[in-house]
């Protein structure tokens, strides 16, 4: 299971890297979203995917899933959401100001 998940994360991060290298600012924003997915899954996987009860003590189970990575990922999700939202509005404002969201056209002149 872990091996499969590691490969999944690897593929997601590879695609995210690819999206980062495209010209469209929106696709870069997609890349940010994908990168956070990949990293979240990787964190969860690398802390072990042992089968146990969900980390709720009312379950009265013998073993529980590790709660710490879940807390870490929860924090990470919220932060990456904040960043993505900001990036999106930035892309929107960039388009409004410059009339393009093509990164190649946003480069500016050499003397700027």
């Amino acid at each position: 299971m872990e091996i499969l998940m590691i490969f999944t994360s690897g593929i997601i991060i590879a695609v995210a890297t690819y999206l980062f290298m495209t010209r469209s600012l929106l696709r870069v924003a997609f890349g940010v979203v994908m990168l956070s997915h990949g990293v979240h899954l990787l964190i969860l996987t690398l802390s072990g995917l042992e089968t146990g009860a969900p980390p709720l003590l009312t379950e009265n189970a013998e073993a529980y899933t590790d709660p710490l990575p879940q807390a870490v990922i929860l924090t990470a999700i919220v932060i990456s959401f904040g960043v993505t939202a900001f990036l999106l509005v930035l892309a929107y404002r960039t388009y409004k100001e410059h009339g393009t969201e093509d990164l190649e056209e946003l480069r500016g002149n050499a003397d700027e």
């Binding site: 872990e2 590691i6 690897g10 590879a14 890297t17 690819y18 990949g38 990787l42 996987t45 690398l46």
Partner: peptide, 19 residues
């Protein structure tokens, strides 16, 4: 494609090592 593939493979190898 090559570079992102390399990044993916690197992530996978690192993940496997950590595992």
């Amino acid at each position: 494609a090559l570079v992102s593939g390399a990044v993916g493979i690197f992530v996978i190898l690192t993940g496997l090592s950590v595992h």
